[in-house]
Write a protein that binds this DNA or RNA. Structure first.
Lengths: 206, 206
DNA sequence: CATTTTCCATAACGATCGTTCCGAATATCT
DNA sequence: AGATATTCGGAACGATCGTTATGGAAAATG
């Protein structure tokens, strides 16, 4: 934190007239709900409560705003994933909890449905290819995080050493992606929970 | 078939200068690759080899063209699903084969990657809400087809009568949707096959 | 209070969006 | 041949896209 001290030296000119974090949060929610291309600058500026010139001054442009909104998502509404993987739980329990939490988070009434990363930006115009690639990279990171967690499970002995870590991690991610589509299509929390429980039946015998 | 007879009576005016089915096929591939909104009329007319006026005359407009392209997909590249469900196979074998075939179809070099239905149009501008709803309805139909197949399995005795048909069907569909995202992200055929095999471990004991 | 610096609302930009209009082309029917 | 019917290519439409330029308001410093 900085600049919370009222006596702190402020820069020379007129101070910004909006809360940067709050504006970013509004942008995140619109991108999350609509996707990158379907969220227009007009809608963004209205949602954020700022003018185009302010948006460009503070964030750089639409693509850069999306990138920051994506970070804001991963650090905010999507931040539930890593702590569950990092927690001191049996490996199987960790993924059970991951799906339970996902079922809850993907269907919250106070948020757009689904995940901003899992199943978005799979199609786009050539102009948005950069954004698509950035989101796809996030998905790849998630698979790698799953793999790391599974390897840790093997090391700690609660997962057989001969399992195909890549295949299992990719399967677990596949279910997450499918859950996100289902959530966007209006599936209920209970339905997602049932899907997650069914998926966990694929867990390898120890 | 009709109008294959060369002596058949032609309608009054100038005959169309393009093959309607072929043009629809080209449109389908572009929509399949790009999604509805990211495929522009300009690109569509170029890909189809016709002018905007011909497109409107023959298909009605962009949204109607998409609807017909979606039918064309389901009757064409996406037609592999229903025969597998209808085939006289053990229920479990049917879904094993479905995933094997999906892994093959979703990664064909001569087609856009992924499925045109499974994980597309989950986000869009308000103007395209109708298209989004139409694709979502197709997804719902697929889940229902899975449920029907599972119920048939219970009747024929190769599936326990007390299983949660809805949950299992939805899980199977969830995996299909996730596979489509993976395919679009560049996953290999072998990786998708491995995911499918892993998913089938969730199959209930008989 | 004057000056300096920054912010921001508005308007305008060129490009592209989906759609429509119009004249020329090409067929059949009388 | 002339009238009629249908299609086609291309230009043009209004709307909206993301972005930038302009100019005045606001709040700091000196």
């Amino acid at each position: 934190m900085e600049n919370v001290d009222p006596t702190a030296r402020r820069p020379r000119g007129r101070p910004p007239g909006f809360d940067r974090e709050l504006a970013l949060d509004k942008a995140m929610r619109l991108f999350w709900d609509r996707g990158y291309e379907a969220a227009s600058m007009d809608e963004l500026t209205v949602a954020m409560g700022i003018s185009p010139s302010s948006l460009y001054g503070a964030f750089g442009g639409k693509a850069q705003l999306y990138a920051q909104a994506l970070d804001h998502y991963v650090a905010g509404p999507g931040a539930y994933v890593l702590p569950i993987l990092a927690a001191d739980l049996p490996t199987r329990t960790a993924f059970e909890r991951l799906y339970e939490t996902a079922a809850f988070e993907l269907t919250r009434a106070d948020q757009p449905r689904g995940c901003m990363v899992a199943a978005t930006e799979t199609q786009c115009s050539p102009a948005a290819e950069g954004v698509r690639a950035a989101v796809a990279e996030r998905r790849l990171q998630a698979v790698r995080a799953y793999e790391d967690r599974l390897r840790r499970g093997i090391e700690s002995g609660d997962l057989a050493a001969d399992i195909d870590v890549g295949a299992l991690a990719r399967f677990l991610m596949t279910v997450q992606q499918g859950l996100s589509v289902q959530a966007r299509d209006g599936a209920s929390r209970e339905e997602l929970l049932a899907v997650g429980r069914t998926a966990m039946r694929a867990w390898p015998e120890t």
